[in-house]
Computed example of a mutant assay.
Amino acid sequence: MPVAIITGASRGLGLALAHGLSDAGWSLVLDARGAEDLAAAAEQLPGPVRAVAGDITDAGHRADLVAAAAELGGPDLLVNNAGVLGPSPLPALSDFPLDGLREVYEVNVLAQLALTQEALPALVDRDGAVVFVTSDAAVEPYPGWGGYGSAKAALEQIGKVLAAEVPALRVWVVDPGDLRTKMHQDAFPGEDISDRQLPEAVVPAYVKLLTERPESGRVRL
Results as ranks from 00 to 15, higher is better:
A111H: 07
G47H: 05
V109T: 01
D178T: 12
L78A: 04
P143E: 06
V131D: 04
G8V: 06
P189E: 07
G14T: 07
A40H: 15
T211R: 14
A205Y: 13
D37T: 15
Q185E: 13
A24E: 11
H184Y: 13
A24L: 03
V203N: 06
L169R: 09
E118W: 07
D175T: 13
P176Q: 02
L155R: 05
A163W: 10
R213E: 00
D23G: 12
L169W: 05
A137K: 00
Q157E: 07
V203F: 08
T116P: 01
A69H: 04
V79M: 04
K160C: 11
V166C: 08
A35I: 13
G12D: 06
V203R: 01
T7K: 00
M1L: 13
Y142A: 15
E140H: 15
H184M: 13
P143G: 00
D37W: 11
R180F: 12
R11H: 08
V139P: 08
D64A: 15
T134K: 02
G146F: 10
L93R: 10
P91V: 01
E212N: 08
G74R: 05
Q157A: 12
G25D: 06
A70Y: 03
A32H: 02
V109N: 03
H19S: 10
L115F: 11
A187T: 03
K208N: 13
N108R: 06
G74F: 00
L101Q: 05
D95Q: 12
P89A: 09
E191G: 07
E71K: 14
V109Q: 01
F96P: 09
A4L: 08
E191Y: 13
L110A: 15
G73F: 12
D23I: 11
S135I: 00
S194G: 03
G12Q: 04
R213A: 09
P87M: 07
V219W: 14
V133K: 02
V130S: 02
E140G: 08
V3T: 14
A164T: 10
E103L: 14
